[in-house]
């Protein structure tokens, strides 16, 4: 229990101190992307479902918020809620189709659906702005708070960030979290105990989708713009990367991964317009470093894989 409070205190402290030591816009992006990374950790780390389509939910949240605020003429809070609900619903639909597929096929299918979502956004340019993205988004005041003030907006995001952390951590420690961890190791045994493994995994997929949608929504509010990149598969790969470098055993790991990612992205883009190349090289570098360094991570994933293989024979 104390350990929980300690971790919570650290997360709150991080949210409070970050804007004091680094530019507030970067700090803000970190906490928003961190929500996305934590959401992704629920499916990848906790449930062992290797989703390579998380950007589809992040992007759904982003576009739904963008649309609600501009063409929809809605105020801010309903727009965020619509983003969350819409992303969760999308995850529910996609999940219902693919959750029975495991391992290799699950990875490919999440990617394929992500690409489909990207394609829809690209083609449906009348609504989404296509390749140019969606601009003209304004942060309407919420209950007297002027969100155009950078600090106020940061505080608004920080509250949601801490809340997301608490909720996702609780889910990880809840019966559902334990069922997911167990099913990752031996889905067949969990079924013979009477658990609907697919049901639990689908629930995790939807919850993850909801928080990814929230992150996408806040991202759009932060930049007052929906870039088409927000729904591209590169974003899906990036968030998996964040989770892996941060570590999957707790919800703090993905926060660290998000911080490293956002910070590096900022750094690389200052250095060179071709920053994505540097970033790709960095990913390759890290992959090889992790190989020797985080042995524990290794063993854990190797065991998951063995269990998976034994299972699929």
């Amino acid at each position: 229990m104390n350990k929980n409070l300690l971790a919570l205190a650290a997360v709150v402290l991080l949210a409070v101190v970050a804007p004091m030591v680094i530019p507030i816009s970067i700090a803000n992006e970190i906490i928003v992307i961190a929500i996305f990374a934590m959401a992704t950790n629920l499916v990848i780390g906790v449930a062992g479902l290797y989703s390579f389509g998380q950007a589809m939910f992040f992007g759904a949240g982003a576009y739904l918020t963008g649309y609600s605020l501009t063409a929809g003429g809605l105020s801010l809070v309903p727009s965020i809620l619509i983003a969350i609900a819409g992303a969760a619903a999308l995850a529910g639909i996609v999940g219902a189709v693919i959750i029975r597929r495991s391992g290799f096929y699950f990875m490919m299918l999440t990617f394929a659906f992500n690409q489909m979502a990207f394609y829809v956004v690209l083609v449906w340019s009348g609504v989404t702005g296509g390749e140019d993205g969606m601009a003209g988004i304004k942060r309407a005041p919420v209950g007297g708070l002027d969100l155009n003030d950078r600090s106020v907006f940061y505080a608004f995001c920080a509250v949601l960030f801490v809340a997301s952390y608490v909720i996702l951590r609780q889910i990880k420690k809840s019966p559902l979290g334990l069922v997911l961890e167990a099913a990752k190791e031996n889905p067949r045994r969990m079924a013979s105990l009477g658990y609907s493994v697919h049901g639990a995994q689908l629930a995790a997929f939807m919850i993850s989708g909801a928080f990814a949608g929230l992150a996408g929504s806040l991202y759009v509010l932060l930049y007052r713009f929906v870039p088409i990149d927000s729904i591209s598969w590169i974003m899906s790969g990036n968030v998996v990367f964040m989770v892996v470098i941060g570590g999957m055993s707790s919800m703090v790991g993905p926060i660290m991964g998000a911080a490293v990612f956002v910070w590096l992205q900022g750094l690389f883009s200052l250095l060179w317009a071709q920053w994505a190349l540097l970033f790709g090289l960095f990913i390759i570098f890290v992959v090889f470093t992790l190989r020797g360094g985080l042995i524990e991570l290794f063993k854990r994933v190797a065991r998951i894989r063995r269990a998976g293989e034994a299972h699929h024979g």
Binding site: F52, G237, F241, G280, F282, L290, R291, A302, R305
Partner: peptide, 17 residues
Amino acid sequence: GGSYLLQVLFLFGTALV
């Protein structure tokens, strides 16, 4: 002999590069 995810991430990074 290591993680599946590392191999996949490696391919992702390579694609970017």
